[in-house]
Simulated scan of single mutants.
Amino acid sequence: MGHHTFDADRAASLEAPERRYSVLSAEELRWAVDCSPDDTVVDLGSGTGFYTDDIAADAGELYAVDLQPEMHDYYREKGVPTNVELVTAPVDDMPLDAGSADAAFSTMTYHEFATAAAIEEIRRVLRPGGRLAVADWAADGEGERGPPLAERYSLDDAVETLREHGFAVEFEAARPETYLLVATAE
């Protein structure tokens, strides 16, 4: 499986609402994350902040975590909401306190960081009962968009991995090219 990162030179392509919202709408993401104005939320692989901005409108504080400083540079040029803090770090080693987040989400980035260490780190950062929403490209998709099929995970694999690392999966939906799951930290 993959674990590659998106080419930062193509960052502008991540800002196409008609393409991005065709696989995950802002409303669906808001439903999956289900945060309130008092919540601290973590975007796992925030990239250009496309989906970060949708959740920032509902959150108290939001940490936009991305491994690539170039993605944060793009986001700064675009304009970062005042309640968003950019964190340049890998998902498996976030400089956030244990139990400091009420929710976390990953939009089309799970395949880039899906290791046991990263899932354990997400669990560490979330408070007990904290919510995790994952939308990603499906391993059984056609592969016309998104990463190559060999770099993707199936919904079943993602669910199993989360359960193995202390998450209770509460919702899962398979789609033609993507999947969505919602879990809580036990």
Rank of each mutant, 00 (worst) to 15 (best):
E172V: 07
E85P: 09
E121V: 12
P17A: 10
P148T: 15
A185K: 04
P148Y: 15
S13R: 14
A135L: 02
E28D: 14
R30H: 12
S154A: 09
H165N: 12
E164W: 07
Y51C: 04
G141F: 04
T82W: 12
A57G: 08
A116Q: 05
E121H: 08
A11I: 00
Q68N: 11
E160Y: 09
D39W: 03
L180Q: 15
A101Y: 00
D156M: 07
A116I: 04
H111D: 02
D53T: 03
P95D: 13
D53Y: 00
Y51P: 01
L62Y: 03
S25D: 05
R145F: 11
R163I: 11
A117W: 06
A135Y: 01
V125H: 06
V23P: 03
P176F: 05
A26P: 12
A173K: 14
V169Y: 01
L44A: 09
G141A: 04
T161H: 12
V182T: 07
D34N: 15
L126P: 04
L132M: 06
T40V: 08
A150H: 14
R163P: 06
D93L: 14
E15W: 13
H4C: 08
Y51K: 03
L181S: 10
R163E: 13
V84D: 15
L162C: 11
T40W: 00
V65L: 02
L96N: 14
F113M: 01
E77I: 08
H111N: 03
R152A: 12
D136G: 02
H165A: 09
G130C: 01
L181T: 08
V33R: 13
R124T: 13
D38N: 03
R20Q: 12
E120R: 15
V91W: 10
E172K: 10
T48Y: 02
F6L: 11
D39A: 04
I122A: 07
S106F: 12
G2R: 15
L62I: 00
V42I: 15
V23I: 12
A174W: 04
D66F: 02
D9I: 07
G146N: 09
L181R: 13
R30E: 13
E61P: 03
T109W: 00
L24G: 01
Y153K: 10
R76M: 10
A16V: 14
A168D: 08
P90Y: 14
A174Q: 10
E18K: 11
D39S: 05
A139D: 06
E164Y: 10
D156R: 15
T48S: 04
S46Q: 08
H72Y: 09
A150N: 12
E170A: 09
A98P: 14
A103W: 01
G2M: 14
R152N: 11
